[in-house]
Computed example of a mutant assay.
Amino acid sequence: MAIGDEFFSETPNSGIGTSNTSSDETANPLFLHHSDHPGLLLVSKKLSGDNYNSWYRAMKISLSAKNKIGFINGTIKETSVEKKPDEHALWQRCNDMVLSWILNSLEPELQDLVLYCTTPHAVWEDLRERFALGNAPLIFQVQRDIYLIKQGQSSIAAYYTKLKGLWDELASYNTITCTCRAQNDRSKLMQFLMGLNESYAATRGQILLMNPLPSLRQAYASLVQKEK
């Protein structure tokens, strides 16, 4: 049984989550779709600790798509059970649902650390304090990985995909936009060419002699054709 299933094994039919819903209801952050359930896995890779940044981004996108961001940033407050009992019941249901989604996205050893937090916001902040790092160490690590990466036994496509993933990750950490896009693109092209196997030395030389230099995508396409 996934975490949270025991809280929702029997749920009164309040009209929330049925197929006959209006657009106003779906825009309400307390709305739950009929496909939502506590055992739902929102991300493909669970948080293990060292993958916090990728987990954070994936979870935030998924929760935003479900209109539940307010439960993790603290903007959706608990309603009064005395003054608005019906609304409080809906809030409690959504609160526990989002809490279950987050707990199910953690490796078992991390679940124990936050199991007794009562709100998604509390869990979110606890995980951030434990695992979030400043950008400088992350940028250093990614840049080092970029300069050390080599094609090795990988195909051109696999090598390029891994390198592009590192570039995208680096871009997500940089808060200052590069004013010289052409220079940035040329740097990526050089990094890509540096890591190629020596069997592509002739093709690499031809690319470097082109004036103007081809784009990264053009160089990649040329090398893939050569590989085939």
Score class of each variant (00 low, 15 high):
residue 111 Q to F: 13
residue 165 G to Q: 12
residue 158 A to S: 09
residue 175 T to F: 01
residue 154 S to I: 05
residue 124 W to R: 02
residue 139 I to N: 05
residue 172 S to L: 02
residue 104 N to H: 15
residue 140 F to R: 07
residue 105 S to G: 13
residue 128 R to P: 03
residue 89 A to K: 08
residue 95 N to Q: 14
residue 128 R to V: 04
residue 89 A to M: 13
residue 107 E to Q: 12
residue 130 R to I: 06
residue 144 R to W: 12
residue 97 M to I: 04
residue 159 Y to L: 06
residue 94 C to E: 07
residue 119 T to N: 09
residue 176 I to K: 11
residue 113 L to D: 13
residue 160 Y to C: 01
residue 114 V to N: 08
residue 126 D to I: 00
residue 150 K to S: 06
residue 89 A to Q: 14
residue 88 H to V: 00
residue 112 D to I: 15
residue 129 E to C: 08
residue 155 S to E: 01
residue 128 R to T: 06
residue 84 K to E: 15
residue 79 T to W: 01
residue 129 E to F: 13
residue 176 I to Q: 12
residue 99 L to Q: 07
residue 110 L to E: 08
residue 130 R to M: 09
residue 172 S to Y: 04
residue 114 V to W: 06
residue 95 N to V: 08
residue 181 R to Y: 13
residue 142 V to I: 14
residue 136 A to T: 11
residue 91 W to V: 08
residue 159 Y to D: 06
residue 127 L to D: 03
residue 135 N to E: 09
residue 171 A to G: 00
residue 102 I to N: 01
residue 167 W to E: 01
residue 176 I to A: 12
residue 88 H to F: 14
residue 146 I to L: 00
residue 110 L to G: 01
residue 117 C to H: 15
residue 166 L to R: 02
residue 129 E to I: 08
residue 115 L to H: 14
residue 78 E to C: 03
residue 121 H to I: 08
residue 94 C to Q: 09
residue 89 A to P: 04
residue 118 T to Y: 00
residue 86 D to H: 05
residue 108 P to L: 12
residue 120 P to Q: 07
residue 139 I to D: 01
residue 92 Q to G: 03
residue 115 L to V: 14
residue 184 N to K: 13
residue 137 P to H: 03
residue 80 S to A: 09
residue 173 Y to V: 02
residue 148 L to V: 05
residue 113 L to Y: 07
residue 82 E to A: 10
residue 137 P to A: 12
residue 116 Y to I: 11
residue 94 C to T: 06
residue 83 K to M: 07
residue 90 L to M: 10
residue 100 S to F: 05
residue 167 W to M: 02
residue 86 D to L: 11
residue 171 A to Y: 00
residue 144 R to I: 08
residue 114 V to A: 14
residue 147 Y to W: 04
residue 126 D to S: 13
residue 152 G to S: 04
residue 78 E to G: 02
residue 134 G to E: 05
residue 177 T to H: 05
residue 81 V to D: 14
residue 89 A to Y: 09
residue 183 Q to N: 11
residue 125 E to P: 01
residue 97 M to C: 04
residue 130 R to P: 02
residue 179 T to E: 15
residue 88 H to A: 11
residue 132 A to E: 10
residue 162 K to L: 03
residue 115 L to P: 04
residue 116 Y to S: 10
residue 125 E to A: 04
residue 97 M to A: 01
residue 89 A to H: 10
residue 162 K to C: 03
residue 82 E to G: 02
residue 100 S to Y: 08
residue 182 A to P: 06
residue 152 G to R: 05
residue 183 Q to V: 04
residue 176 I to G: 07
residue 116 Y to W: 11
residue 123 V to P: 05
residue 94 C to P: 03
residue 177 T to G: 01
residue 89 A to I: 09
residue 99 L to I: 04
residue 139 I to Q: 08
